[in-house]
Amino acid sequence: MEKVDGILYRYILDHSSTITETWLALREKQAGSIYSVDTDVKVEELLREQNTLTIKTVTSALLEDKNSFIENMEQWAAMVAKSRVESDTPIYEVLEALNKVRETYWDFITDHMLKDNNGITKDTIIRWSRLINHAFDQLNREFTEQYYLLTKKRLLAQQDLINELGSPVIPIVDAIAVLPLIGEIDTYRAKEILNATPSKCISKNVSHLFIDLSGVTLLDTMVAHQVFELISTLKLLGIQSTISGIRPEVAQTSIQLGLDFSEVSTHSTLKQALSKQGIKLYERK
């Protein structure tokens, strides 16, 4: 590290709290944002701690050991990205806040270092500009990558939950279970049901599955074909199927498609289907 770099490094770290307070003072009212000037006291303290860490991370780019900056950057990005995802903070708000940190950082260097006539050469200023701006750019890139990965992970988890709720295999007695399908079933959802239901039945030791379609708002020809495939797959696994709630138009469509449901027990309602199996549903009075 050159001598002037060491002086700047120590000077910034010694005044990191001042830079942070200056940055916090720039906040304005932003409804629903953690960066709003009227945010909760605990959130403000979190911002203060994280911004101080931001300053320390960027300043470590002045060190001779470049691995130190990389390690600091990765830790910083992981922590801040997790915090912002958990608080549902839009990524554009974070990047805007980081830009203000950059501006505050440079204003501080300009006001307290360059104006004091410390004999700093133009070459040194240009080198600092490259080092520090590159450090901020790397922070932006690392943060956006971590933010994307965490957001993607959350979306996948939500999609898994949606898929699970979209085709729940519910055991009711012994080895009997019900698959109540509700809402619109498009081609994508039909494929998910076809792929997930057999393994669910196996894991729950189901030998007889009641597929109730009475809550389905739309069932096109492609979906009808997927339901037929599901029944065929379950049959190969030794699992008996019963359909309830199938609408007349769907039945007619199935016949036109050449889908043979003649060997599948069908009933107008789930209650009727279960009663046929000797299972009674008691209604509340």
Rank of each mutant, 00 (worst) to 15 (best):
L213K: 01
F228I: 00
L274G: 04
E249Y: 10
F108R: 03
R10T: 11
V227N: 05
L274W: 03
W76T: 00
T266E: 02
C201W: 03
Q138G: 12
T18A: 12
Q252L: 12
D107A: 13
E263Y: 07
D116V: 12
T266H: 00
P198G: 05
D212S: 03
E64T: 07
H208M: 11
I182L: 14
G119Y: 04
L139A: 10
L63P: 01
Q159L: 06
K276W: 07
S268T: 14
Q146G: 01
K271C: 08
I279Q: 03
E283Y: 12
K191D: 11
T18N: 09
Q272L: 12
T266V: 09
K56I: 05
K29P: 00
E45Q: 10
R48S: 09
T89D: 08
N67D: 15
L257H: 04
G6W: 08
I12V: 11
D5I: 02
R247S: 14
K235C: 02
R127L: 06
I182E: 03
L98P: 02
L131D: 07
V4N: 10
R127I: 04
R84H: 06
D107Y: 09
I12R: 03
F143I: 02
T217Q: 13
I55V: 14
L46K: 14
I126W: 10
E142C: 07
T233S: 12
T54P: 00
L156V: 07
A61N: 00
P180R: 09
V178Q: 03
T217E: 14
S275H: 13
